[in-house]
Nucleic acid binder design. Structure first.
Lengths: 169, 169
DNA sequence: CTGAATAGGTCAATAATATTGACATTCCAA
DNA sequence: TTGGAATGTCAATATTATTGACCTATTCAG
């Protein structure tokens, strides 16, 4: 017996693309895409003795200018303790350059060293090929739609803050 | 200094939507969408004492008919040992019903009990709202493009098998 | 100047999820 | 009957994450 939760289109209020089945497929699409995109760089990470947490941090440090620790925390959605382990390891390996912000000396601006930049570009290259192929295959218009939907998904309020998951404060 | 890896559109061979910057945005879009979609059900899981691993398993058991353990392993991309922990817990709580396949008695067909079905629909409902809103906002055409790109991404070979990550066999 | 708030770092304990490796059973198929 | 497929399990370990408790700087408002 298939799962159903909304009353069956009684007066067909919902357009076809908003059925539970379509939404379920979208959930799975995001799941599988995530799998594909973030599994590709694994073999490179393995060489360096890193994991996906390092990759995620490197990515945002690479592509955001003047990231601070708090900025990174917001992007990654993890605790400071968790992030700091990763940053410590990357810094010890000479991948990162953390310097004090001149405008606010409490802040640290995180940058990549040349070594870090090399690694980040290796990782990006590993992901790029799959994506480029998919984009080319789907075509320009589809990519526009893809982007519109993705932005709309990300737009909504953050689940980590909205709910009563955060019991403190 | 921003990162660049492909030679700058010398004769503009690449369409605009295939630039490194667009591909980078797509990677982040998948990352953030995954975050949003799979953080939403967390507070429900917490009530049951489950984690995201349980959610993923429940999802596919709910929406695939006649899933076997191997089928689930392929979908989830984890090891048998990892999956079995989750299945054991779900079964002990009366969420699952595993019965032997009559055609091939080595296989187990995994189904949801009514309890499991209730939980799965709660979890799905938690994800559905965000998605429906995003789809409605983006519109029918955009959703078509979204689907095309997602399918193209998932289409490519599986990173877990293609590389030399799997050293055995 | 003082105190609150912000930004950052760290120690310790623990949890969730995952891995590798080794074995065992049951069952299908050639 | 033998090989392999499907499943389950024990044990050890790794990765990533958490909560909770402290700590130092620095900024900023009063």
């Amino acid at each position: 017996m298939a799962y159903a939760s909304t009353p069956r289109n009684e007066i067909s209020v919902e357009p076809r693309y908003l059925t539970d089945d379509q939404l379920r497929r979208a959930i799975e699409a995001v799941f599988f895409s995530y799998q594909r995109i973030f599994y590709d760089p694994d073999r490179i990470l393995q060489v360096y003795g890193y994991g996906r947490a390092h990759h995620r941090a490197l990515h945002f440090i690479c592509f955001r200018t003047d990231v601070t620790v708090t900025g990174l925390l917001d992007l990654l959605g993890v605790t400071r303790q968790s992030l700091n382990r990763v940053l410590r390891e990357l810094q010890n390996d000479g991948m990162l350059d953390m310097r004090i912000d001149t405008h606010d000396r409490r802040r640290r601006i995180i940058c990549l060293t040349p070594r870090g930049e090399t690694l980040a570009s290796e990782l990006f290259a590993a992901q790029r090929d799959r994506l480029r192929k998919a984009f080319r295959q789907a075509g320009s218009e589809a990519v526009g739609g893809f982007r519109a939907v993705m932005e709309a998904i990300a737009m909504g309020e953050d689940a980590r803050i909205s709910g009563d998951l955060e019991r403190g404060s």
